[in-house]
Structures are given as structure tokens and as C-alpha cells.
Computed example of a mutant assay.
Amino acid sequence: SYGDRLVVDLYLSKVKEYKPVKQINSSGGKRDVIVVIDPGHGGEDPGAIGPGKVREKNVVLSISKELARQINAVKGYRAYLTRESDYFIGLRKRTEIARKRNADLFVSVHADAFTRPQANGASVFALSKKGASSEAARWLAKRENASDLIGGSGVNLGDHDDMLASVLLDLSSTASLRASLSVGDRVLQSLGGVARLHKRQVEQAGFMVLKSPDIPSILVETGFISNPTESRRLNTRSYQRKIAGSISKGVKSYFSDQPPIGTWLASNQSKSGSSYTVKKGDTLSQIAHNNA
């Protein structure tokens, strides 16, 4: 609607450059689980605009800030935002920030829109298999990307290990997608406790911000900003806290069961976990029950 134009975005240096950082060791020498939260749109990109000129970029920033606050309030977690105020960040830059933060999970927060105001409900997306395949091809086409991706494996690709790079990238992408679907399901079920769901299963699409081959990533559509009722709710602090709380609950539920190796959560789980010694004459059902 603007017609031809030239846009120049100016960033503060602390926003423009994100250098790789060591993961936080604030929990007894063990690192925290890192969650990078991405408020969609921003700056010249307002996102969807609902009744009363409610702008998606403002709603999702408020929800994301509250989500970060709730996650940071729990021992063993550390949350970062890709943007902390009203400015635009390119889509690939958002995933770069997550990688440089050594993220265990990337959560992009949005508000949906449709041509008909009746459309409603929250959704959760993970990357589609087709999107994962196309991104893998892009990474392999740039060998420096592939080297960065598997650098932590201790493998030296050299100039001739294209097959090895392809296999390792495929393994990493498959594991990340599986984790994305799993954490997405936890978040979706939690969202269902406070909001109407648009779909009752995690959907898959080729969203650019979900294309990190090595970082589990989900995109949360918190509701339809084009729906008058949901737009009003999404624009209130009380509902924003509820939505953030449900996302936080789903994330923590997943990591409680699947704590990353080397984290305080994993260490605490192993210390608090009970064990059962199998005795002669025990049946399989008894063993399973005592180890549940």
C-alpha cells in the first residue's frame, strides 16, 4: 500500500551484533536451558492489524516479554528476546540470534489473521519435512554453514566429506524436527486450557524462522487478531499473561521430561530420580510399575 519506497533501518550496536555467548552457569555450575523468544514483525512491519487498529507487532512483543519473564523466574532456565522493542529484524537474522545464544529452543510468537472475521483459535506450527529438506540443501550448498552446524561434533569435514556432511545434517534436522513436534504438542495442549484452538494438532509449514536444522523451533499463533473478540482479548495484559503462562507451562513440561545434557535440569533430575532393584521372582509388570 506504500508504493515504491526506500527503507533504511538503523540499529543500536547492541541490537545489530549478537556475538556467540557461553551458556549461563547460574545453577550450581550446570548450564541453564536456553529459550530464545521471537516476537514477530516489528518496526516498519506491523504484522496483521485487527479491529480498532490493534497491531500484531505490539501484541506479540508484550506476550513475548511476559513469556521471557515467566521463564526466567524458574531456576534452570534462561530466556532471551530477538527484539526488545519496536524495530524490525530480518527472518534469518532471528534464527542467527538463536544460534549465537546457543538456544535449546526457539519460540516465535505471532497472531493470526484471515479475510473472514469469524476465523478464531490458537495454533502451533513446526517445520514441514519439505521445508526441512530445502533448508538442508541450502546449508550444504554453503560449506561454511555445514561446518558451523556440526563443528561441535569434533568431525573435520575437509574438502571431500560431502556425504558425511549430508548424513550428519540429516540426523541433526530429523532430531530437531522430532523435538519441535514434541514440544509443540505440549505447548498446544497447554494453550487449550486458556484459549480456543484453531487446530488440535501441531501443524507443519515452511516458515522461514523455523528452518534452523540444529535448533528445535516452533511458531505459536496466539489467536486471530482479525477476529473482533480475540483481538480485544489479545490486547489486554491479563489475557497476554494467560497466553504467556500457557506457553511457558508447555515448554517447561517438555524440558522436564527431556532435559538437555549438561543442564541443571538434567542434573537435578538424575539426583531426584529414584531407582528400583530387580529382585528374583519380580514380574515384568512389577518392574515397570516400580520404575515408573
Score class of each variant (00 low, 15 high):
158 G>V: 08
274 S>N: 12
61 L>F: 06
199 K>A: 11
60 V>F: 03
89 I>W: 01
15 V>Q: 15
6 L>Y: 01
192 G>V: 07
275 S>A: 15
59 V>P: 02
101 R>P: 01
186 R>C: 14
175 A>K: 13
79 A>H: 03
268 N>M: 10
13 S>P: 03
105 L>R: 01
251 V>S: 04
201 Q>M: 08
105 L>G: 00
5 R>G: 04
88 F>I: 09
220 V>E: 04
200 R>L: 04
97 I>E: 07
129 K>T: 02
5 R>S: 08
177 L>R: 05
77 Y>R: 04
38 D>P: 06
130 K>S: 05
290 N>L: 09
13 S>L: 10
184 G>C: 07
196 R>G: 09
277 T>A: 13
72 N>S: 05
258 Q>V: 07
10 L>R: 12
130 K>R: 11
74 V>W: 01
244 A>K: 05
88 F>D: 13
42 G>A: 06
148 D>L: 10
28 G>H: 01
72 N>E: 07
121 G>I: 08
230 E>Q: 13
119 A>D: 09
285 S>N: 13
135 E>T: 02
235 N>M: 08
260 P>S: 01
43 G>H: 06
276 Y>M: 13
217 S>C: 01
238 S>W: 09
43 G>R: 09
224 F>I: 06
39 P>V: 13
14 K>Y: 05
80 Y>C: 06
230 E>L: 07
276 Y>R: 09
103 A>I: 03
30 K>M: 12
30 K>A: 13
214 D>Q: 10
287 I>A: 04
5 R>H: 12
285 S>A: 15
91 L>F: 10
80 Y>F: 15
14 K>L: 03
70 Q>S: 11
259 P>D: 06
35 V>G: 01
28 G>K: 01
77 Y>H: 02
189 Q>L: 13
240 Q>H: 08
277 T>N: 09
140 L>G: 00
233 R>T: 03
289 H>Q: 13
255 F>L: 06
1 S>V: 15
268 N>R: 10
84 E>V: 15
110 H>M: 02
118 Q>W: 03
81 L>M: 12
266 A>R: 06
277 T>V: 15
10 L>I: 11
207 F>S: 00
5 R>E: 07
111 A>M: 04
38 D>C: 10
9 D>R: 12
13 S>I: 05
39 P>M: 09
192 G>D: 10
73 A>Q: 11
77 Y>G: 04
266 A>S: 13
149 L>K: 06
112 D>L: 11
279 K>S: 14
71 I>T: 11
111 A>Q: 03
25 N>I: 12
51 P>E: 11
257 D>E: 14
54 V>G: 09
42 G>H: 05
173 S>H: 00
38 D>F: 09
271 K>M: 12
212 S>D: 05
264 W>I: 01
37 I>T: 11
14 K>C: 02
46 P>S: 13
216 P>F: 02
284 L>N: 06
